[in-house]
Amino acid sequence: MNRRFVGLIVFCLVTSLLSGCTMHISDEHSLTVTDQKGREVQFAALPETIVSLAPSITEILYALELDERLIGVTTYCNYPEAAKTKTKVGTFSDPDIERIVSLQPGVVFASALAQEPVDKLTEAGISVVVIDPQDIAEVMDAVRLVGRTAGVESKAEAVVGELQGELQAIQAKLRDISPEEFPLVYYEVWHEPIMTAGPGTFIDAIIEAAGGINLAGDTAVPWPSYSAEAILSKNPAYIVIGHSGQTPEAVLARSGWQVTAAVQNRRVKALDPDIFSRPGPRVVTAVRLLAEFIHSDLFN
């Protein structure tokens, strides 16, 4: 009877210890996150494998060194180079639901552009976290959110700290100039027909952060087809070509445009449109490149 009693106690101890361990583990990794669309997503365990449904999100994942856990990306995810080798699961607006489900990822990070796929994936039992930053500050939140979901919060904080540090350095240099003296910047999204970025877009936010005034900042629509006349009469000081449709030389040769300060001073530059339109970590690179262009005296 003693042996049995001891055995029972040992059994109880062991099981309680073990169960305590598992409870301890699940306590550590079960979590609830609120995504950037206000949805609450619950995770029973740490999502080991990740699928990204937007190029910006892929960039965030690489910045957080989560690339080993990344098992699916969109066809447009082209940065960094290594991302191109990952399995493709469709586009951000039209992902291949079956493919994603067959991969059984721990979490899918989607952009706000795809509501239907989000619903379909959720129905299929896949956890979906929507990443939808509306401005630069929310990009930082997005990095933190991804970090929290994936269990790499400290890394996320480090990345955010770096990015914010860079931003603040730029802002510091800009403090010497009063906002009235910010130069007028015309950012061209496409040339035929003329399309630029209005208020509420990322490009608009980047221009502002870089110490410039968006020429199209007064329109009511986010992607206006701006009248060439109006552009000329507003006389932008800097022109950014955010597309590959025309070289800066061709832009300089546009009839009538020589009346702008930008063309007269040959301040026309082509910048990578990807970094200007993706709400990811490179948005700070965009701010820096633009600031270096429009405030070259400040940024050597």
């Binding site: 496409w190 040339h191 035929e192 027909p193 003329i194 087809s225 060439a228 449709g245 009839s255 009538g256």
Partner: peptide, 20 residues
């Protein structure tokens, strides 16, 4: 890369046209 202009064919525009 060249595809954007093709979309404009469907709409018609005289914006930014010159003597050329």
């Amino acid at each position: 890369e060249v595809n954007h202009p093709l979309i404009y064919w469907l709409m018609g525009s005289f914006n930014n046209r010159g003597w050329r």
